Amino acid sequence: MLRRLYDWTMALSARKSAEVWLAVIAFVESSVFLVPADVLFLPMSLAKPERAWRYALIATIFSVLGGIAGWWIGYFAFDAIAAPILEFYGKLDTFNQLKSGITFETIVLMLVTSGFAHLPPIKVVTILSGAVHVDIWLFILSAAITRGARFFLLAWLLRRYGEGIRHFIEKRLGQIAMAAAAVLIVAYIAYKYLVH
Rank of each mutant, 00 (worst) to 15 (best):
A69N: 01
V64Q: 01
M44L: 09
T60S: 12
G115W: 09
R54N: 04
L141Q: 13
G130L: 03
W71H: 09
G90I: 02
P36N: 06
A23Y: 00
L157S: 03
V195A: 12
R51T: 01
Y55G: 00
S114R: 03
T146V: 04
P84H: 08
L12Y: 07
V20C: 08
S142N: 13
G148L: 01
R147V: 07
A182K: 06
E29F: 10
D79W: 09
A143Y: 00
I107R: 04
A187S: 12
S45Q: 02
G67A: 10
F152S: 09
T106M: 13
H118L: 15
K192Y: 05
V28Y: 09
A182E: 06
A143M: 11
L12A: 10
T103K: 04
A179I: 10
S30K: 01
L65T: 08
E170Y: 13
H118F: 14
T9W: 02
P36G: 06
D93H: 14
L109K: 05
W71M: 05
A37Q: 05
A14R: 12
V35Y: 10
F33V: 05
R15A: 03
I68M: 14
W156L: 14
L40H: 03
E29N: 11
Y6E: 06
G164W: 03
I122W: 12
A190D: 06
Y89W: 13
P36L: 05
L12N: 08
I25C: 09
A143Q: 08
V124Y: 08
H133K: 15
R54W: 09
L46Q: 00
V125S: 02
A180I: 15
S129Y: 04
H167E: 15
